[in-house]
């Protein structure tokens, strides 16, 4: 997906993160986990670094809204933030996209609540 297609996808203040929307703004835990496991450590690290800089501001911005009334752009931003939390352990704890020495990911079914 090109830059222009994603333009306006996020609230103005977070424009610099729009390049991540098509890859990482995913609606379910299962999708986010699959994206994490299918990404390289390099891709994960770039996303992590970009998000870390903004994550506190993102939380603050989103807190002007209540969850059931999130506009589209804010919903995308929230899903990006969820993806950040999904990949954070890969960067901070495991130093690898997936959990090493764990049961095979495909054997754990992730059901959406």
């Amino acid at each position: 997906m090109s830059q222009t297609e994603q333009s306006g996808a996020l609230p103005e203040a977070f424009k610099s993160l729009e390049r991540f929307v098509s890859g990482w703004s995913l609606a379910t835990e299962d999708e986010r986990n699959r994206k994490r496991r299918s990404s390289s450590m390099h891709e994960i690290q770039s996303f992590y670094d970009a998000m870390l800089e903004h994550i506190a501001a993102i939380a603050e911005h989103l807190n002007d809204f209540s969850l059931p009334e999130l506009p589209q752009r804010e919903r995308r931003l929230l899903n990006l933030a969820f993806s950040f939390m999904e990949i954070a352990p890969a960067v901070e704890v495991y130093f690898s996209p997936d959990v090493p020495a764990a049961i095979d990911a495909e054997r754990l079914v992730i059901l959406s609540p």
């Binding site: 835990e29 994550i55 993102i58 939380a59 603050e60 989103l62 807190n63 809204f65 209540s66 969850l67 059931p68 999130l70 804010e74 929230l78 933030a81 969820f82 939390m85 999904e86 954070a88 352990p89 704890v93 495991y94 959990v99 764990a102 754990l108 992730i110």
Partner: peptide
């Protein structure tokens, strides 16, 4: 219903699941 709390909770959920 706070998006910020949901972001925090996503961290906990992923840590727990991993």
């Amino acid at each position: 219903n706070s998006p910020a709390v949901k972001i925090a909770q996503e961290y906990s959920k992923v840590a727990m699941r991993d």
